[in-house]
């Protein structure tokens, strides 16, 4: 009798289970399909040019047979890193503010606003960056279209994602833990810094990595303000080209090896994302609260 009821329950659920399973299979098959298409398209370039030359060629001039991707890898990494350095603290502060400081109507309005920001099409962010941000930066140091402009626009774009996930994770810190700290005479500020934020670490890591994933992949807004010159920038005021912008700019006319080399760009982006996901796994498998012994 005891064994029977779960068995029967699963029979009742089985059409749903089959449906859900099929959908899950379809989704993962699609992802695998996309990956293999990219890999397949990239194989020609990898075979003909070889992996090594993507790192050692003089520059990226596909028409003259130069295929160095490093400037674009640097561009993507720097733009995304800059965006994260700006957006992460802001997102964290927003989460703590909304959860522990703001009166509830303010908090609700703030969250709605952030959700709205998340829904704005990226081209609008790009347009705003182009007409507002780029001229301001150009006043500081020409030409304006730069690593800094791209990072700033991207920071605004990933901020909603980070703030929303950070808010969820800060909210899920157990109340008893906060009460324990307050009952021990912790001030509100140090309860935040010493208890709440370390306790929400996993969720904050998820926020950071999802934000970084979006930052790496974002194309349109970045392309509009980054300047798109192929170079490893020497300052934040210099133009950069990202991997995603590289694909979008050249795919329309690229042929043969050049076209295939763009798929190598895409593979590198996939590698970025896989790296971020692996990092996520690594971070979330650790203890919920860090236990460091300062000397």
């Amino acid at each position: 009798m005891y064994l029977r009821s779960p068995a029967r329950a699963s029979t009742v659920l089985s059409p749903m289970l089959i449906g859900a399973g099929a959908l899950a299979l379809l989704a993962s098959a699609l992802i695998a399909f996309i990956f293999f298409v990219v890999l397949g398209e990239a194989m020609a370039a990898l075979g003909e040019i070889g992996l090594w030359r993507f790192l050692t060629d003089a520059s990226w001039h596909p028409s003259s047979g130069e295929f160095n991707l490093l400037p674009m890898v640097a561009g993507t990494g720097l733009v995304a890193a800059g965006a994260m350095v700006l957006a992460m603290p802001l997102g964290l502060i927003a989460a703590v503010f909304v959860t522990f400081y703001a009166p509830s109507p303010v908090a609700t309005a703030y969250l709605r606003l952030i959700e709205l920001f998340a829904g704005i099409p990226s081209v609008l962010y790009g347009l705003w960056g182009l007409v507002v941000l780029v001229p301001i930066i150009a006043d500081l140091a020409a030409p304006g279209s730069s690593l800094l402009a791209a990072s700033l626009v991207l920071a605004l774009m990933v901020l909603p994602t980070i703030a929303l996930i950070a808010t969820m994770s800060v909210r899920s810190v157990p109340l008893e833990r906060i009460q324990a700290a307050r009952a021990l005479g912790f001030t509100k500020a140090s309860t935040m810094v010493k208890i709440v934020i370390p306790s929400a670490r996993k969720g904050l890591a998820v926020a950071a990595i999802l934000g970084a994933g979006r930052a790496v992949g974002e194309t349109m807004a970045v392309m509009m303000v980054a300047g798109n010159i192929v170079q490893v920038p020497e300052s934040i005021f210099e133009p950069v080209r990202t991997l995603s912008a590289n694909i979008a700019l050249e795919i329309a006319y690229a042929m043969d090896v050049h076209r295939s080399a763009l798929f190598v760009s895409a593979l590198v982006m996939i590698a970025f994302v896989v790296l971020a996901t692996a990092l996520l796994e690594f971070v979330t498998n650790k203890q919920a609260m860090p236990d460091v012994h300062p000397d």
Partner: peptide, 30 residues
């Protein structure tokens, strides 16, 4: 300061999810 003078023990034990030592270090440092 009042809460430092008047300790509160809850129904459910609520040590911080840290080492035993850190459970002392954190409030004392505070």
């Amino acid at each position: 300061r009042l809460r430092k003078q008047v300790g509160l023990i809850f129904q459910k034990p609520n040590p911080f999810p840290l080492s035993i030592r850190r459970n002392f270090e954190l409030p004392l440092r505070e």
